[in-house]
């Protein structure tokens, strides 16, 4: 089963995703695919908090900031994969050199294809993204390219995943499919 989760920041997406992944795994292989490449102490702090959050839940961490299919090379595809998040993955792929704003325009399509293929190859996947599309702001072209790119990735994932859920203040709005029993 594949589940796509999105919603606003700090609304409980990761918590729900972790619960669902544990539920889907039913004791079989359980992986946490960490996509964030830490750039500073703030990032490393957030990662430490996330690791503490899932301590004892039985996740094996696979670090994969780019080329998402590569993390499956040594993993049990019959297992359950929690991928958090599409947002960070696209960021890493769209800006290959973090010291500049130079963009790889092919990144959104490559990310979308990689993630959809990922969802097809594994038994269970829970993929988290971020909903950043409902504010009144006119962004610069670089930010707008990122937003447009992530929305494209999201729409592709929503199409291929069995279930699409939006999280709002910890509550689930189901847009497609069902949640596991």
């Amino acid at each position: 089963m594949t589940i796509f989760i999105s919603g606003g920041a700090k609304n409980g997406k990761s918590t729900l995703a972790q619960e669902l992944a544990v539920q889907l795994a039913k004791g079989s292989s359980l992986y946490y695919v960490a996509t964030m490449i830490p750039a500073d102490e703030e990032d490393r702090d957030r990662i430490r908090r996330h690791i503490a959050d899932r301590d004892g839940m039985g996740f094996e961490t696979l670090e994969c900031g780019r080329d998402i299919l590569s993390c499956l090379e040594n993993a049990d595809r019959e297992g359950t994969f929690l991928l958090d998040s599409a947002t960070a993955l696209l960021l890493n792929e769209l800006f290959p050199d973090p010291t500049s704003c130079g963009m790889d325009d092919a990144a959104p399509r490559r990310c979308a294809e990689g993630l959809c293929e990922f969802a097809r190859r594994v038994k269970n996947a829970v993929i988290v993204s971020d909903y950043i599309y409902s504010d009144a702001a006119l962004y610069d072209e670089v930010t707008e390219t990122y937003r447009r790119g992530l929305a494209y990735v999201d729409r592709c994932l929503a199409k291929v995943c069995d279930t699409v859920a939006e999280v709002s203040c910890g509550n689930v709005i189901l847009h497609k499919g069902v949640l596991p029993e």
Binding site: G8, Y133, S134, D135, A136, A137, L138
Partner: peptide, 22 residues
Amino acid sequence: CQDLFCGVVPLGAEMRAWRQET
């Protein structure tokens, strides 16, 4: 129409007016 009223109240007066008008 885009639902652009879910973010923080924008600092700029024009963006604020746009958000309200919409």
